[in-house]
């Protein structure tokens, strides 16, 4: 027998701090698998966000920089411009990317910055304990929308992929989900393609990953995946928004 599935080399042995059943861990592994398969661990530099994944620099074997809240695309820009031959990715949540860092992500995308962003959308703020995110669903109860998100009071969920795909510099935009095996495999393919798009120097690439937050949603991990499928996907349709036919 041969080993057909094990921890990828790009992921360190360190036990991750995420809550049981949180899909952050899956996304981390997928990124690491992609780094392994592309053989780029030695030239990859990751940028960690502020949010639950703030210290994921401890989990990846590549060089890592921790950025201020929302600023990862600017920090990644600085890194990439110094080392254009390196592979640079940011890992950002919905508060980081879609609220405080809206300007940075839009402009990095619009500049066609040759970086890859992995955007974790779980419709809630995890780190600060369950506040409303820009991506919180209408009616969803959070600690800062205790009576449910009301559009007239809080505005509407922000569809990042749809928005970014209107920008010329963003060449590969795809939304994937963690809610079942098939979709996890799709997610890995998308992340791989996003990295390849960067390596081919084509421009900015982003993969939005619908993820679960069992703790702040108050749903057990298995049912949290169902919640993604039933509640999130109608608001955030899966699929490719741009760059589907890019040959890389």
């Amino acid at each position: 027998m041969a080993i057909v599935f094990q921890r990828p080399h790009a992921l360190r042995e360190t036990q991750m701090h995420y809550c049981p059943g949180c899909t952050h861990g899956i996304v981390h592994r997928l990124i690491a698998e992609v780094i392994d398969e592309l053989g780029v661990e030695g030239r990859t530099i990751g940028v960690s966000p502020v949010g639950c994944a703030y210290n994921n620099y401890l989990y990846f074997n590549c060089d890592m920089v921790q950025a201020a809240h929302g600023r990862a695309p600017a920090v990644a820009t600085g890194i990439k411009r110094v080392h254009p031959d390196n592979v640079v990715f940011t890992y950002q949540g919905d508060g980081d990317l879609a609220a405080i860092g809206t300007a940075e992500i839009i402009h990095a995308a619009n500049r066609g910055e040759k970086i890859t962003t992995i955007f974790i959308n779980n419709a809630i703020y995890g780190m600060t304990s369950g506040q409303m995110a820009p991506t919180t669903l209408v009616g969803q109860v959070t600690t800062t929308s205790p009576f449910g998100r009301k559009p007239e009071l809080h505005g509407y969920p922000l569809n990042v992929c749809e928005m970014l795909s209107t920008l010329k510099g963003a060449v590969y935009v795809e939304r994937v989900s963690m809610h079942d095996i098939k979709n996890i495999k799709n997610a890995k393919n998308a992340i791989k393609k996003a990295f390849k798009v960067q390596m081919a120097g084509l421009g900015f690439s982003i993969v939005e990953v619908l993820s679960s937050c069992p703790t702040n949603w108050g749903i057990d991990p298995v049912n949290a995946l169902k919640w993604i499928e039933e509640k999130m996907i109608p608001q955030y349709p899966l699929g490719n928004f741009k760059g589907k036919d890019l040959e890389v």
């Binding site: 940028v47 920089v65 950025a67 201020a68 600023r71 600017a74 920090v75 990644a76 820009t77 600085g78 890194i79 990439k80 411009r81 110094v82 300007a103 940075e104 402009h107």
Partner: peptide
Amino acid sequence: VAAMNMVYGAA
């Protein structure tokens, strides 16, 4: 804000 964070990255 972004400019100084780009500096952060490049440094």
